[in-house]
Write a protein that binds this DNA or RNA. Structure first.
Lengths: 232, 232
DNA sequence: TAGATTGTTAATCGATTAACAATC
DNA sequence: TAGATTGTTAATCGATTAACAATC
């Protein structure tokens, strides 16, 4: 069990957003290395596995503290524990998933959540044919609740996940907020309107594909397509 | 049909990554405004709907050209057309989806793709009980092909989507690359190793939740949890 | 000690912001 | 003209990078 060294800690505000968003990736990679029985890793190797430069990796870690040994590298298990501690993975957060279509079911069956400090405590759907069905989430089984139960269920959750069609997203979001949920992950393309203090992260497959697509078209067939060439 | 004004265009490299990643969002919001019959929008309003500042929005657009009218704002349909042109949405790209579990099915049934310049041309799965089944993707129906057909199918695709379990992701990725696919979207948590010239975007729900979770724990109950407090 | 690798610095680079002149 | 809003500038801010002293 890791113990943070008395180097840098606290002053959480000092961790830049860009660093915060990379920490879960390092955690991920370290867990994989530990599974393979690898005991020690250098910043160069860990960085390569994480898809970043070694300078960036060392800079990121240095913001949390000093976890390595010069001339040797990092102890995989120890570093994993330190980052997990820092991110607070040990204190599980409760998640409610709204919309139990294909996407919601994929989330419910996603194994990675419990090991990362999350626990799905509620599944909500508007479709009467789905309400009442049971779904296995990690180590427990949950009954799908009707939309009318949303606020009640959400009162016990810290995080809400919106996996409904786009048309329902804002309304679901409003109800989550009114139930006191202040962290929302949405898969609906709409930009949700929320009061200050509520944090939303949006995953939009269409956006990701368009970014890939732009670069693909650019390098793919430079002659075939140029910005502005397709007009009329 | 929009026609790009002779202002800034070409020199695509000049568009910063951060701007490129916001353009699809503006497109999205503009489409919604057009649906509502709104003809004109100011940078302030469009920015608010998109979740950015108006300065950022105007700066972004100014990198592509000059699409507005001072004192008036932007013509919704015209601006939408200009951005769509710029992103190359008019030239559809072919997508192969590997892994037709809940997540893959959610993608296949996602309506937003065809309108955004994408066409799913192949579904591939390793599970014999799924192979051969038909699935409706937008306006066509596709038969699920066995994994052994992956390379053949991928040869006709510009973009590959990996919706398999994590354990299969790297192997699928390798085959996509060997089939000539240079743009990959993956939902597997692993950081994929690809040769130079191949672009990968990774969507990891666990990472998103951990970022939300960190902030939630921080503001949620400051006394209950501090970085480094959970140790042993 | 010699070799290796961290943690940190300082310089560079890129993105955001506020403010305003241009102009509809 | 008067009011409004764009497009652009210049200043600020934050993130990345290369290099190296510290040190195992």
């Amino acid at each position: 069990m890791p113990l943070l060294p008395p180097g840098r800690p606290d002053r959480v505000d000092d961790v830049p957003t860009a660093t915060l968003e990379r920490l879960p990736v390092y955690l991920q990679v370290l867990a994989g290395l530990a599974d393979q029985g690898i005991r020690t890793v250098s910043s160069t190797d860990l960085a390569e596995h994480s898809g970043v430069t070694s300078a960036k990796l060392r800079k990121d870690l240095s913001l949390l503290g000093s976890f390595g040994t010069r001339g040797v590298g990092y102890d995989v298990v120890y570093l994993h524990g330190c980052i997990a501690d820092w991110l607070g993975v040990m204190q599980p957060l409760d998640v409610v998933v709204v919309g139990v279509g294909n996407l919601g079911q994929a989330l419910a069956s996603y194994q990675g959540l419990s090991g990362r400090g999350f626990r799905i405590i509620g599944l909500v759907d508007i479709d009467p044919s789905r309400v009442g069905q049971s779904l296995t989430c990690g180590d427990t089984t949950l009954r799908i609740r009707p939309l009318s139960d949303l606020v009640d269920v959400a009162r016990h959750a810290q995080i809400g996940v919106i996996a409904t069609p786009d048309s329902a997203a804002q309304s679901v979001c409003d109800r989550l907020v009114s139930a006191g949920v202040r962290s929302i992950l949405t898969f609906a393309p709409s930009v949700l309107r929320v009061p200050a203090g509520v944090e939303v992260r949006r995953i939009d497959v269409g956006v990701e594909l368009q970014i890939l697509g732009f670069r693909e078209r650019r390098q793919g067939s430079p002659a075939a397509w140029q910005p502005g060439a397709v007009s009329a």
